[in-house]
Nucleic acid binder design. Sequence first.
DNA 1: AAATCACGCAACCGCAGTGAT
DNA 2: TATCACTGCGGTTGCGTGATT
Length: 207
Amino acid sequence: MEGAGNGEQRKGLWTVEEDIILMDYVKVHGKGKWNRAAKFTGLKRDGKSCRLRWMNYLSPSVKRGAFSEEEDDLIIRLHKLLGNRWSLIAGRIPGRTDNQVKNHWNIHLSKKLGVKGKYKVSDSSSEFSKKPEADFSIKSSSNDRSIPSNKTEAELQNVLEGSHEKAKEITSTQEPILTSDFYDPYLYAPSLMELLDESLDFLWHDF
DNA sequence: AAATCACGCAACCGCAGTGAT
DNA sequence: TATCACTGCGGTTGCGTGATT
């Protein structure tokens, strides 16, 4: 891979200078091709590191600061439904990354809920507690936000498909909340979040 | 004031999936 | 069709910092 012949790779925390270099690169070339970004900028970081730094920290869509009660509540409920599918959960919480959600869960929420064992989600605690054999067959167009398959799959699909249409309606009449570059109507329409939240409610009573 | 501990966050690692050639 | 590069994800680790002793 890249970097193999590149002598020493820097590790650890990013410096301000590195951040600026990476941000400048993204400004000009856009996201993606992170390995090339690493080469092009001369950063002694590999592509994965550049990507992670951007996604988790530099991206303007990343919300900093403490999690709100609403976010906590949403995470708890989505985790109940989806298990440790952090990217999926984060995808439903505007401005939060999977890393943030994961950390927040492990540090705060798992304690709060008395979940035993770091990262462990008991098999029974999550309806969709992952495994490859499960049919995560429904894919959204833009990303791997697949939806677990089980008896509620169709319902969930309806929720999300309906949400998609509603999102278009909602977002077509309002300004994007965040920069267009990262704008995802699935995620950033507050009305949609409420809708999704309400729509999922019927799923919770089974748990 | 120094040492220790606990917590929180950022970053790394390994693997799997996907697309391009 | 096979291979490779790239991306994304979840789990884990390491470091910085504030609190406590």
